[in-house]
Design a binder for these strands. Structure first.
Lengths: 234, 234
DNA sequence: GTTTGTGAAAGGATTCACAGCA
DNA sequence: TGCTGTGAATCCTTTCACAAAC
C-alpha cells in the first residue's frame, strides 16, 4: 500500500496487485457487510467480520489491506466505506450489462436471481436457441433467439455472457459470444470451454462441489472405522 | 505413495493425504475422462488431459500421482481405470443419498440436473416448507414438508443435505439438517451458515463468480484504455 | 522415441506476532 | 485498552526438469 500508481491524471493508492485468493473472498465480505448495514451496524472489526464469513481475523485484515488503509486502529472498519471500496474494486459500480443464454430450469433460476441485479449487474437480454421458448416472458424480459446475439451486444454494450445451456450447445454458444466481442464468460454448462487468449471464462459446476463434499464425507466415514474395506486393496 | 496407512484391518497404499487443491480438480478430470470414454478413447496422456481441463501436464501428473501409480510410461493412463480410481477416491461409489430442501426455481433446476444422479448421488427426498408446494411432482419425486426431515433421514440414510431455499430460511433449515444427523451440507442460499464442528458445509454462490469476473473485466478495461503504463500487471 | 513419477525449486497464501496508532 | 496493518515465518501449491520405464 505504500507505492503509488498513475491512473489518468490522478495518483491514488495502488490496488493493482490484489491476489486472486483475496479477490475470490471480496464478494463474500461484501455480502456480510450488506447484511451488517441492514442490521444497522456502522462499524465492524476484522474479528467480527471473520466470524461472519468463517475465517481468521488476520486473513481479513490482510485481504482488506490490499484495497488500501481504510480501518481505524482501536475501532475497526466503517461498514459503508468498506462496501464502497470493495464494490469499486470489484468493478460493481460499472453496471455491467449481461446477456444470459439458455432459459431452461437453471436459466430461469438465474434470470430471477436477485443476487445479480442487487450487485449492479443488468440483464440486457435473455436468449435461447429453442424457437418454442422465444417470446416467452421471464422476469420482465422477452426471450430472443440466439441469432440476435450480435445485435444485442451492439445495442446494449454487453461485456459479460452467462451460459446456462445444456452441455452439448455450450461450446457453440461460447464461440458466438466470443465472435460477438464478449470477453468475459460465466459458464454453468458441464463442459470445459475452449476460448482464445484474452477471453476470461469462469465455470460454476453444480455437481463439483457435491463431489468434493462426497470426498470429505467418505473420508469421515472411513476414518470413523465403520467401513472395513471397499474395492481394491494393495 | 511410499508409506502405508492402516485402515481397519488392512494396509493399503496411502491416499489419505490428497491435497485439497487436487481434490477440487478430481471432479473436473472425471468429467473429461467420461467424455473421452464416450468418444471411444481408451488411453490418455497427461498432456492431452491437461489440454482438456485447461492446465499444465505436470499438475495433472502430480494430481493423479496422489491416487497411486496408475499410468504407463511412454503410453499414458487407461481412461476406464482412471475413472474408477478417481470415482472411488471421491467416494462416488458409495451411492450417497441426498436430501434437497427448497424446490423453487433453483431447487427445480437441481432436482432435474443430471450431473447429480450420473455421478452416483441419489436424491432421496425433496422437501419444502411452503405447504402450497408440498405434493408437487418434480423429477418423479413428490415434494414433502420439511417436518418430514427426521423421518427421511432415518428411512433413507441420508448423509448429504442440499439447501436451495431463500436466504432467510437457510440457517433454520441448516439447523434442522444438523439436528437430524446430516454431516455434509451443500448450500446454494446466499448466506454463510453457522454449523457446529464436525459438520462440513460447502457453498455455491451463483453471484460470487460473476463478481470475480467483473473484477477481471474491470481490470482489463482499465488497463486497455485509461492507464498509460505501469501498475496493472498481467 | 514417448510419457510417467517425483525430488527440488519457485511462487503464493495463510498464520503469527507485534509495532503503531486511536 | 483495543484493533489495525504488516514484516516474518510457515504452510501449501505449482512448476521445473530429469531419471526411470515402456
Amino acid at each position: 500500500m505504500t507505492d503509488q500508481v498513475r491512473v489518468g491524471e490522478v495518483t491514488r493508492p495502488r490496488r493493482a496487485g490484489v491476489p486472486e485468493a483475496t479477490v475470490a473472498r471480496l464478494p463474500v465480505y461484501l455480502r456480510a457487510l450488506h447484511a451488517l448495514a441492514e442490521g444497522g451496524a456502522t462499524t465492524v472489526s476484522s474479528e467480527a467480520l471473520a466470524q461472519l464469513v468463517g475465517g481468521g481475523s488476520a486473513k481479513v485484515r490482510k485481504d482488506l489491506s490490499h484495497l488500501g488503509s481504510y480501518g481505524t486502529r482501536g475501532v475497526g472498519y466503517q461498514v459503508e466505506e468498506l462496501v464502497f471500496h470493495i464494490s469499486r474494486e470489484l468493478g460493481l459500480t460499472q453496471g455491467w450489462a449481461v446477456v444470459l443464454v439458455g432459459v431452461g430450469n437453471l436459466g430461469h433460476a438465474l434470470a430471477g436471481y436477485g443476487g445479480f441485479t442487487s450487485r449492479g449487474f443488468r440483464i440486457a437480454a435473455l436468449l435461447d436457441s429453442d424457437p418454442g421458448r422465444v417470446g416467452e416472458l421471464i422476469a420482465g424480459q422477452r426471450v430472443r433467439p440466439v441469432s440476435d446475439l450480435d445485435d444485442v451486444v451492439r445495442e446494449t454494450g454487453v461485456s459479460i455472457g452467462v451460459i446456462a445451456t445444456p452441455g452439448a450447445s455450450a461450446q457453440d454458444v461460447c464461440d458466438r459470444l466470443v465472435l460477438a466481442g464478449v470477453t468475459s464468460i460465466l459458464n454453468f454448462a458441464p463442459v470445459v470451454l475452449q476460448v482464445p487468449d484474452g477471453v476470461d471464462v469462469r465455470k460454476v459446476d453444480l455437481s463439483v462441489e457435491l463431489q468434493i463434499l462426497s470426498f470429505h464425507q467418505n473420508r469421515r466415514v472411513l476414518s470413523a472405522g465403520l467401513v472395513p474395506e471397499q474395492g481394491v486393496s494393495a
